[in-house]
Design a binder for these strands. Structure first.
Lengths: 348, 348
DNA sequence: CATTAGCACTTAAATAAGAGGAGTGCTAAA
DNA sequence: TTTAGCACTCCTCTTATTTAAGTGCTAATG
C-alpha cells in the first residue's frame, strides 16, 4: 500500500503515532492518540485504523497487548510529510545558532580545516547527534600551487595547495636521477600552465597536450609525466566526525551493540566514505531512514545530509546521524541551515 | 602500609586475588583462593589475611558478605610485581605478532602517517584495547625543507617537510607587499642555512644570528623574521587513536558513563594531549593505574605507555588504554615490543 | 600464639507468585 | 461505519521466599 492510498484520517493517525513515539520512546496506544490529538472518534475506531496501518506495514506491535511502534516506513511517511515545511520554516532558536555559526565560519574562512571542523562540531553540538562533514575532493578543486620536493634517493613529495588553501601531500616513488632542480622546473611548468584549473582538468589536459606535441614518445618525458600523474592522483579521504558521545546515551541505544558498529565505522575511513557514496553532491538535501541505508552499520540510524557549495558548484556534504526516532523537523532545519551557512561562507 | 611491609604469604594472597579478579570480574572469596592456589592453610586463615589486606587498603568489599575486589593499590602492587618479568619474557604468539608488524612497518617506512596509523591499529587489534600513538613533535624533528606560498592578498602558507617526510602546513597572516619572489628567497635562505637542524634550533639560531648582525633593527627584516618565527611555530597535535569499539563491550564498562567520558576525551585533541603530558618521553615504559592518572576522564582505566625512538632520541609515545582489570602481563609485553619495533624501523 | 573448625549472620541474586494496568481485539448494537 | 463494552493478553512492579556464597567471630587445638 502506498502512502497516497491512505485516506486523510488514517494519515493523521499515522502522523500522530510517529510524532508521539519521537517524543517518548514508548509504544503508542489508541486512547492516547485519540485524546492528545483531539480525534472526534472513539478509541476503538483509532484502534481499527492502527490495525490497518499495521497490516500495511507502517506500524508494529512489540507484543499482543502493547501499543504500536512506527516502522521505517512510518518514519519515511512522516519525513516526506514534514519535509518541505521544515525546509522553509526557521525558529528563533535556530536563527540564533546560525548567526553565531556564520560569524565563526567567517573568521575561519582562511583556514579550511578549522572551518569544516567547526561546522561539524557545531552541528553535533546543536543537535546532540553525530555530525559528519565530507571535505571537498582535492581533484575537484582548483590548483593554487604545486611543489615537488625530493626526499631521500628515490622519493618525491608532492605538495599541492588548492584554491581553498587546503594543503595535501603525497609521497611517490621517483627515479633517482631526478634532481631537485628538475623537480622545480616541473613544478614551475605545472604552476604556470595550470594555476586555477582543477586537478582533474590538469591531468586530462596534460595527457592531451603531451600527446599532441609528440613528447609522449620521449622516454624521459614519459617517465616524468607518469610521475606527475601519480602525484596529482588524490583519493578522497577526508571526513570530519564529531559528537559520538552524544548519541551514546540516547535511550534508543541502551543496547550497546548498535553503538559499537557505529564506533567501528567511524574508525574505518573506508566505510565512512561508503556512507557518503549514496549521497550525491548534486542532489539537494536527503534523508535516509534506517533500512534505506546501504551501509549496514547505520541501519539503526537515520541520516540527514545536504551538499554545500561554492557558488553553484557542489563541494562536499554535511550530514547528521541520529536515531531513527530523531527530531526530524529540527534536524532538517539545522542541516539545511548549516549547509547554507557553509555555502555562503565559501561563496564570497 | 607499604608493600615491603607485607610478609611473603600475604603477598602471595594479594597476588592471587588480583590475578583471579583479572581472570573473572567477580569478588574473590577466601576458599576459592585457598583451593585454586594450593595454600596449605584453611580458608579462615586466608580470610584473616584478606581482612588485613583490606585494612591496609589493598582490597575492598562490595558489601559485607561478599568476596574481595582489588583496589588501585592492589593493581599497583601486582604490576610492580610482574613488571620486570613481563618486560623480559616473550610468548610465541607475541613473537609472531611482532614479526608481522615489523614487516608491515618496514614497508611503510617512507610514509610516516601510515606507519604510525598501522602501529596504532595493530596494537589495538592485538590487545582488544584502545591504542594511542603520539606522533613526533614537529619542532623536535630536523627540517628537510620549507616552502612559503603566497595565498590571497595577505596570507602565506608555510609548508614544512621534516626529515621523516612528514608534511605540516600553517597559514599565517603576512604583509600584502610581500611577493612570492620574496618568499622564495626567504625559503631558500632557510633551506640553505638550516637543512637538517631541528625546528626548535632554527628558531633560536635565527633570532641570535639576526641580532648579532644588527639586522634585527631593520624594520622589514624584523617583520619577516616575526613571520618566519610564527610559520615555524607548530603546536604538537597529532595523536592517532584506534579501537574504541573494542573497549565498548568489556564487562567493566557495562555502565556506559565511563565510556562516554573516554569518547569525549578522544574527540578532544586537547585532553588527549594532556594525557601524554604525564608520560615523559625520556623515561622508559610506564604503567598508570586508575586514580594515578591526572586526567580525570581516564581514572577508570589503566594506561601502558612506552616511548619510541630514533637511535637514542625519543620521538613520541605509543600507549594502550584498557580496563584496570586488564591483562597486564600481555599488555606490557606487547606495548614494549611495539615500541621496540617502531624504534627499530625508525632507526635504520 | 598462630591456626583451625564450626557456626551464626549478612547480603545479593534468583525464583515465584500475585496484583495492577495499559492496551488490544472482538462482538453486538447504534 | 462507528461505538460501547468486555474479555483477554502480556508486561511490569511488588513482595516474599529461597538459595548460595562468603564473611566474621569464638572457642578449641597443636
Amino acid at each position: 500500500m502506498r502512502d497516497t492510498m491512505l485516506d486523510e484520517r488514517t494519515k493523521r493517525v499515522l502522523y500522530a503515532v510517529v510524532e508521539s513515539y519521537i517524543e517518548k520512546p514508548e509504544p503508542v496506544g489508541s486512547r492516547y492518540i485519540m485524546k492528545k490529538y483531539g480525534f472526534d472518534v472513539c478509541s476503538a475506531t483509532i484502534r481499527n485504523i492502527m490495525s490497518d496501518l499495521e497490516d500495511a506495514g507502517f506500524l508494529s506491535q512489540p507484543h499482543t497487548s502493547a501499543g504500536r511502534v512506527p516502522t521505517d516506513r512510518a518514519y519515511r511517511f512522516y519525513v516526506d510529510y514534514i519535509f518541505h515545511k521544515a525546509l522553509l520554516s526557521q525558529s528563533q532558536e535556530i536563527k540564533k545558532i546560525i548567526e553565531s555559526l556564520t560569524k565563526k565560519l567567517r573568521k575561519l574562512r582562511n583556514n579550511m580545516d578549522s572551518l569544516f571542523l567547526e561546522a561539524t562540531q557545531s552541528l553535533s553540538q546543536a543537535t546532540r547527534y553525530l555530525g559528519l562533514t565530507l571535505l571537498p575532493a582535492t581533484e575537484k578543486t582548483a590548483l593554487h600551487r604545486v611543489d615537488f620536493i625530493k626526499f631521500k634517493e628515490d622519493l618525491v613529495i608532492a605538495v599541492v595547495v588548492n584554491d581553498k588553501g587546503i594543503v595535501k601531500n603525497k609521497i611517490i616513488k621517483a627515479y633517482p636521477e631526478i634532481t631537485q632542480k628538475d623537480l622545480n622546473s616541473l613544478a614551475d611548468f605545472v604552476n604556470q600552465n595550470y594555476h586555477g584549473k582543477t586537478i582533474d582538468e590538469i591531468r586530462v589536459d596534460m595527457m592531451i597536450r603531451l600527446k599532441k606535441e609528440k613528447l609522449f614518445w620521449d622516454k624521459l618525458i614519459s617517465k616524468i609525466l607518469k610521475m606527475c600523474q601519480e602525484a596529482l592522483n588524490f583519493s578522497r579521504e577526508d571526513v570530519y566526525v564529531s559528537g559520538f558521545y552524544h548519541i551514546m546515551h540516547l535511550p534508543d541505544f541502551s543496547d550497546i551493540e548498535k553503538l559499537r558498529e557505529v564506533a567501528k565505522t567511524i574508525q574505518d575511513r573506508h566505510l565512512l566514505l561508503k556512507l557518503f557514496e549514496n549521497i550525491s553532491e548534486d542532489e539537494d538535501m536527503k534523508v535516509i531512514i534506517g533500512q534505506e541505508n546501504p551501509v549496514e552499520e547505520f541501519r539503526s540510524f537515520s541520516i540527514i545530509a545536504s551538499p554545500y557549495k561554492e557558488k553553484d558548484k557542489s563541494l562536499g556534504v554535511i550530514a547528521l546521524v541520529g536515531p531513527k526516532r530523531m527530531n526530524y523537523q529540527r534536524a532538517i532545519m539545522l542541516v539545511n541551515a548549516f549547509a547554507r551557512s557553509l555555502t555562503r561562507t565559501l561563496s564570497d
